[in-house]
Design a protein around this nucleic acid. Structure first.
Lengths: 321, 321
DNA sequence: GTTGGGGCATAAGGTGGATTTATGGGTTGG
DNA sequence: CCAACCCATAAATCCACCTTATGCCCCAAC
């Protein structure tokens, strides 16, 4: 990413008379229709009529018509074929709709997570989860849970494994999710998924052209871009290497680590959950490693003896592989 | 942190003249901040100050302040800690920002794709791609290409393998991407990725509890939820089974197939590219298959002899594994 | 043939939200 | 103690979107 915030053109957008001048780097919101319009497009695709889609979203037909039209104007592409008997997507519209669906799905995950972050008080299911799990897995679980039990209000507290264990033990949370190597005393647990740390570099890095896998010695001897001390990633890595890893830089967010590695600063070690797009888009390359145990279990935890029941049991059932 | 900021407002917006009642499940756009606000939040996280973020986005500082504040009110969570020396994310804010980043990334893919769909005429690189590739892979490539060659305008034409071959041969496209089993005459090609068809069912389906892998006979004998005849998926499947697959339902979009399978209508066969979320959220379950060649190559194609050059070569370089 | 219903487009009017300017208060460092 | 940051608030403006009220088109049923 561009850490070079300083030298960007001083865009003055207060240009009233002339249309919205597309800014070079920013202004994504000016080029992408807003969420409501994308939702509307999905509804039109599903229902085959502007009017029906409008009714489903609780707006009037002219509003839907206008919204679709302005979206077409914004994108410069005809999206729907209107006919007196309904509306069907054009070829381009089908493609746009597919892309829109992914935006809406991400927004749904955002919504599910944000709602859990808010409820807190009157919720029927209080969950505590480690950062990685809260960030990457929980929103999906919450969406699935809402599909099965729409009335279950969930609250979420995110923290490291110690905090999660405390909350669960004290009864402040009904169910916990941790990624640690070991489980605190007084807690029962079950493995719900597996995660793995992955060594990555920029595609241009020397390691990206290695034919042989890395071994523990090389990994331990090389300064790495890492999360801050105390993070789950560091704990697992230290344990796997049999001693503390050597940090090249310490950063406080997974995103910063990815950006730094992608810019070529050096090799980084990250959870595979955090690497999706980056690997398939080849912004980062995974380096094979052997002789190092970089896998880790993700576990659900609850107070010994108190098997999860009710909503907690429902959620647990969703998460088990 | 003040979780209880008292903002529990019912927020029903369109209660005009007792019009259509807002729907319970819908209205995602009312609960998720719009893209501009999410972008602003990311900028604040990166720059550490509302004012700097505002300048980067070309708005004034009060506008940014107000926007963040209304987002906090909407979500019911404090997102940033303001101080006279800048603003940093709260714990909840960091989580929200991570979720927001995924929405924005999906929007960036949307933008990249939509822009390619529009340009068409004056573009420096004209690409023709099969549906699956255009839908799932191309946006990411375009983002990467924009990172390297920001001035390259790309246009996209999506169609089946035959159409792609035609356009490339006629010179209407500089580079093509196909997923077929074979490559048309007059075209050179290179394999850029691999795809695989996967048999999926709802988690409750009998096949989900099998211990033994499916074989070709069982697959051929079972009615399946499939894309329409003529789709790439059907071609590969028919070839792999040594005869036409038996359709239970024929649907015209990948999404419809997924939805139908997830609702328990029966087993479906889909590209692994189309299955991400569904598998990890366990809405669908992959059924092991053996003795059937369900893999397929994804290829870039160009007219025999005319090695891609210029922008086409840049794009090709990005896509090669 | 005519009529009713579904579907879409256009026009005119109202409303709310977001933005801009203008200001003030707070902290930090020279 | 002043300059340079930062942020919050207030008031005015403006735009985007929505709604209501139409009109036209097509089809199917009577």
């Amino acid at each position: 990413m561009g850490w070079d915030d300083g030298a960007r053109a001083p865009r003055d957008r207060g240009v009233r008379g002339a249309g919205p001048v597309p800014v070079p780097g920013g202004g994504l919101a000016h080029r992408v229709p807003e969420l409501g319009a994308l939702e509307l497009l999905l509804a039109v695709a599903r229902l085959g009529s502007l009017g029906r889609a409008a009714r489903e979203l609780g707006i009037t037909q002219p509003a839907a018509s206008s919204r679709i039209r302005s979206m077409e104007r914004q994108l410069g592409v005809a999206l729907v074929d209107r006919s007196p008997r309904g509306s069907r997507l054009t070829d381009a519209g089908a493609l746009v709709t597919d892309w829109a669906r992914r935006v809406v799905e991400a927004a749904e995950a955002f919504d599910a997570g944000a709602q859990a972050l808010r409820d807190r008080r009157d919720s029927r299911l209080r969950v505590a989860a480690s950062m990685t799990i809260a960030e990457y897995l929980l929103p999906g679980w919450l969406i699935a849970l809402r599909g099965q039990r729409p009335d279950t209000a969930v609250s979420l507290l995110a923290g490291n494994s110690t905090v999660v264990a405390e909350r669960v033990l004290s009864g402040e949370a009904d169910l916990g999710f941790v990624e640690g190597v070991s489980v605190a005393g007084g807690l029962d647990s079950v493995v719900i998924a597996h995660d793995r740390l992955i060594v990555v570099t920029a595609p241009g890095h020397a390691w990206a052209r290695r034919s042989r896998a890395l071994d523990a010695g090389e990994l331990a001897a090389t300064p790495l871009i890492l999360r801050e001390k105390g993070s789950g990633t560091r704990q697992v890595l230290d344990a796997a290497l049999g001693g503390p890893a050597r940090p090249l830089i310490e950063l406080s967010s997974t995103t910063a680590v990815k950006a730094s590695a992608a810019s070529g600063a050096g090799p980084a070690v990250l959870s595979e959950l955090a690497l999706g797009e980056e690997l398939s888009a080849r912004r980062l390359v995974a380096i094979p490693v052997e002789g190092v145990r970089l896998g880790r279990d993700l576990r659900a935890v609850w107070p010994t003896g108190h098997r999860p029941a009710g909503p907690a049991r429902d959620l647990l059932a969703l998460t088990r592989a």
